[in-house]
């Protein structure tokens, strides 16, 4: 089977800090996968490596069998943690932008979702609230019919209603042959949407299992397991 994302001994070291430590990972198509871990565990680093914003210190990362390059960027749809949309653009212009550069962009889907959100095509991004900007960015990212969606903390710092909106948008744009990788530290809210979860700590994968298996075998939710594994009270977890 062709893995949509593959990491082989992937290592990333910054000047003083080892963000990822010889990570091995394989993601199959058609899954919604949670990349879970506390802040600083390497989640964002892994995602940035996957979309070519960083280069590995050692090892390799492959998207659909290729190293990150212009071709892989064409099949990866990335939602960054921060708002990357140019503030001066109007809604219509940013939709045109995505349509211009991404062949897999579904303009009709985007327009429909934007209208549903109550946004006018002439509205400038500068005038929108933070929450609205985030939703707009999500709409644009999910309107692409990509093979791999990388969502970096899509629900962090958003109110519960917005969280619901975000998860519903992800679900309704889900396609069977695509993989969605959601990085978050808020597990309870996303657990029922996930097929598999990856626990990441200090740049190493602690666990990579299906949600069903965790509940079956351990009789607890992923959220409960996560709290156990990542306890911060000083007690040993071994």
């Amino acid at each position: 089977m062709e893995y949509i994302l593959e990491c082989k001994a992937l290592t990333k070291r910054y000047e003083s800090n080892l963000a990822l430590d010889a990570v091995d990972l394989r993601l199959a198509p058609g899954r919604i996968i949670g990349l879970l871990g506390p802040n600083g565990s390497g989640k964002t680093t892994l995602i940035k490596l996957a979309n070519g914003l960083l280069t590995p210190t050692a090892g390799e990362i492959l998207i659909d069998g290729q190293k990150p390059c212009a071709q892989t960027k064409a099949i990866v749809s990335y939602l960054p943690e921060r708002n990357a949309l140019p503030e001066w653009m109007r809604v219509k212009q940013v939709i045109d932008f995505y349509a211009d550069f991404y062949a897999d962009f579904r303009r009709d889907a985007a327009n429909a979702m934007v209208a549903q959100l109550g946004l006018e095509p002439t509205q400038r991004i500068k005038t929108m609230s933070k929450g609205t900007k985030e939703k707009l960015q999500l709409i644009l990212v999910m309107s692409r019919k990509a093979k791999l969606y990388l969502l970096d903390e899509p629900i962090g710092g958003v109110d519960p209603a917005a969280r619901d909106y975000i998860l519903r948008t992800i679900l309704s744009n889900y396609s069977e042959d695509a993989t969605v990788l959601i990085s978050t530290h808020l597990i309870a809210d996303v657990e029922q949407v996930l097929d598999e979860v990856i626990f990441l700590r200090n740049g190493r994968i602690e666990l990579h299992e299906s949600v069903d298996a965790i509940r079956d075998e351990r009789g607890k939710s992923v959220d409960a397991l996560f709290r156990e594994v990542f306890r911060v009270d000083g007690r040993s977890n071994d």
């Binding site: 070519g52 914003l53 212009a70 064409a74 960054p80 550069f101």
Partner: peptide, 16 residues
């Protein structure tokens, strides 16, 4: 555009 927040958009475009 390249090195600020917009860089997250520009540097992930399918272009060299």
């Amino acid at each position: 555009n390249i090195l600020g927040d917009e860089g997250y958009l520009m540097m992930t475009l399918p272009t060299g």
